[in-house]
Nucleic acid binder design. Structure first.
Lengths: 212, 212
DNA sequence: CGGTTGTGGCTACAGTTGTTCACTGACTTC
DNA sequence: GAAGTCAGTGAACAACTGTAGCCACAACCG
């Protein structure tokens, strides 16, 4: 299926990616609704009008960024939730994975947290769509677990949403810890991991006693 | 203690409040980091320079808005968490209260949800400060409950944070429901209330089995 | 090879922005 | 009642914004 792009298409993808990267960098200290098209092109080193060859507007670029930040995350979610082992083990592994992802893609995480409730409607919707998909996937994995016997699909979905929200909230806290002055950082990361682990453990307890 | 303001001070407070109100209105469809000072003064009907008599910058105005949106909410939190009755009853009453608050002050709720992770650092910090205070207050109320016997202060605080996050997330969902086209609105509100109630019930279950 | 396509550059335009300065005139204080 | 304070005004500034029209030139296709 993979068609080798012509030199032309390849160059276009390259500048497009440069625009996305530059925008993501600029969004570390402002929100999308204040991001200017000229600002982005200036950072890349292309003419302002070149922007239109790739995106209709900055809102459009924002939607593309959502895809980039969350689109490739679905397989990761599925495997994380479905890994075997006892509950305690799964909790620590999930949190470790979140921490690693935040370390690897801090700008993406910040972007999602910021624009989830941000001022640009199409971007908000794109994020909500992706998160809803996450919740559905988590529910599907939870359904396979023997603990879920007797649960209604509705209840499984509400638990899945709780997990997804919890994961995103934890990611955001890891991000804050990441921005701490050097010496405090590790300590704050450990504390975030500790609190998050106990919260997930508590939710897991509620889950096990749901049908009492 | 309450000193009657002179006519002058009263007028000043009045325009200050007008600026805050106008800003809150404008922030329904954009984020603080893109809010212009001239935009605000234009909406109020005063000269741009008048803005400086009240705020150093729009970020400064944002911090004032945080105070207005959350400052007066502390007594409400305390009484809500501490009300007597069985757990089920408390859950539905809390959610009812959140729904009512979102109905009464939708712009404030939107502002907090939007700027909690927004692009303006001083505002983010102001919100975090207030939410941390909420968590501490919730912990203090939880500590009085006999169910909390044997709990460490640390564990109570982590549970309190879970509750606060859950409340804010629920408020944001109510807000989305509020913006639905007329006929769907009530139905979506009911669904949000139902899911939120079950999530809080599940957390409550985890809480009761924490020390097993 | 020759014609077509399309990415990106350049110039220009009309609006907007934050901030400054000197100012007015109603209120407050002595 | 005179002197002082200070919220709000108006004009001017340089810098910035999104968008339009036209052009260059490298890559593509027949």
């Amino acid at each position: 299926m993979s068609h080798t792009l012509g030199i032309r298409q390849a160059q276009k993808q390259k500048t497009r990616q440069a625009l996305l990267d530059a925008a993501l960098g600029l969004l570390e200290e402002q929100s999308l609704s204040s991001l200017g098209l000229r600002e982005v092109t200036r950072a890349v080193g292309v003419a302002p009008t070149a922007f239109y060859r790739h995106f209709r507007s900055t809102a459009d670029l924002g939607v593309a960024l959502v895809e980039e930040a969350l689109g490739s995350l679905h397989p990761m979610i599925r495997t994380t939730v479905s890994t075997t082992g006892d509950h305690e083990e799964r909790v620590t592994r999930t949190i470790e994975l979140i921490a690693r992802h935040v370390d690897g893609y801090p700008a993406h995480v910040r972007f999602i947290a910021r624009e989830r409730h941000g001022g640009v409607q199409p971007v908000r919707e794109a994020i909500r769509e992706q998160l809803d998909r996450f919740a559905q996937e988590v529910r599907d994995e939870l359904a396979k677990d023997p603990v879920s016997q007797g649960w209604t699909g509705d209840d499984l979905l509400m638990l899945a949403h709780l997990y997804v929200d919890q994961m995103l909230s934890t990611a955001s806290l890891f991000l804050e810890a990441l921005e701490s002055p050097g010496e405090e950082r590790e300590e704050r990361e450990r504390q975030v991991a500790r609190v998050a682990a106990r919260q997930m453990r508590l939710i897991g307890l509620g889950r096990r006693h749901w049908l009492d």
